[in-house]
């Protein structure tokens, strides 16, 4: 009896709360519908990977084929080539990105002249704000046969004759990494600068008293002080190994018939099969593979972060 009564009053409290908040809850319902339609329906659309999806038949009318598309996918050399390309480009991008932005932050920290520091910083993240279309236009213009890069290397004698950089398979991954570095280095350095500014200034003073030079201070104080942030950023990036939206933009804008073998990433493979060849179901199976592996990577990285004593991200 008593339990019932408590339940009743609990129910009353909830009902009262709902009636008080009915306007907010009604709005919330609209937002939830938005998320369901634009974010969850596409996930529900994964069923198409187990069908022979035909647009005019829809999800209910299309024929079920089980794992046929997945079997075909794992038998397709192009798919494995796409995985190799994606991971290869992602890793090179990450290495260049990390070293350059950490380096820039350290160098900026060594500048005593505040105005020069601010100017360098402000200029260095200008490329971050322009679109990849603009960046890619700049990259292709610079890498022309008579572009600035060839002029530079030939005039210094490193090259006998101009190279068509974008037309050679062996340079493509490097170009992707370097152009991403050029665009994002200043921006990515911000987070490391913030980490440096949190380092206790007393540590530096103590080391000066102990007679440590600037290089030793960088090595023994600045770098260790940045370590938690660096590790956090590495972990955050593990989930992105199978490709990010910027990688899609970058490769789509810079690839060309001469380098297609090393340029096609998982997302572009999906796009080619889905949008050009209209093999919707097959393309969706590649997309599912990517999504699932990415989620597993994110959660694994998160677990590692916890083990290492980092704050969990999720």
């Amino acid at each position: 009896m008593a339990g019932n009564k408590i339940k009743l009053t609990e129910k009353n409290v909830i009902l009262k709360k709902i009636s008080e908040q009915k306007l907010l809850l009604l709005l919330m319902l609209v937002f939830m519908i938005y998320f369901i339609v634009f974010r969850y329906l596409p996930i529900a659309g994964w069923v198409m990977a187990f069908q022979n999806y035909k647009p005019h038949l829809g999800f209910t009318g299309s024929e079920w084929v089980g794992l046929k598309h997945f079997n075909e996918l794992f038998g397709d050399p192009d798919f494995f080539r796409a995985i190799r390309n994606t991971i290869g480009m992602s890793i090179i991008r990450l290495i260049f990105g990390f070293i350059s932005s950490i380096g820039l932050a350290i160098l900026l920290n060594e500048v005593k002249n505040a105005a020069f520091k601010r100017f360098t910083q402000t200029v260095s993240y200008l490329p971050h704000f322009v679109s990849w279309v603009v960046a890619a236009t700049i990259v292709t213009t610079s890498l022309e046969r008579d572009g600035i890069v060839n002029i530079f290397f030939t005039s210094l004698g490193f090259l006998k004759e101009p190279v068509l950089w974008l037309g050679e398979e062996k340079y493509f991954w490097l170009i992707i990494a370097l152009s991403d570095m050029w665009k994002e280095v200043g921006w990515n350095a911000i987070i490391y600068l913030a980490a440096i500014s949190a380092i206790d200034i007393n540590q530096y003073e103590a080391s000066i008293v102990d007679g440590a030079g600037r290089l030793r201070r960088i090595w023994h104080i600045t770098l260790p002080g940045m370590m938690p942030t660096i590790i956090l950023m590495i972990i955050l990036n593990i989930g992105l190994l199978l490709g990010t939206f910027t990688l899609v933009e970058q490769v789509m804008l810079l690839d060309n018939p001469m380098v297609i073998k090393v340029a096609e990433t998982i997302d572009l493979y999906t796009l080619r099969l889905g949008m050009k060849l209209f093999r919707f179901s097959f393309a969706a199976s590649a997309g599912i593979f990517k999504s699932l592996v990415s989620v597993i990577l994110v959660f694994t990285a998160n677990a590692i972060a916890k083990k290492l004593g980092q704050r969990a991200l999720i």
């Binding site: 659309g45 994964w46 393309a283 969706a284 997309g287 599912i288 999504s291």
Partner: peptide, 8 residues
């Protein structure tokens, strides 16, 4: 963390 992917 979860995306449907380009095609869906």
């Amino acid at each position: 963390y979860m995306f449907g992917g380009i095609i869906p």
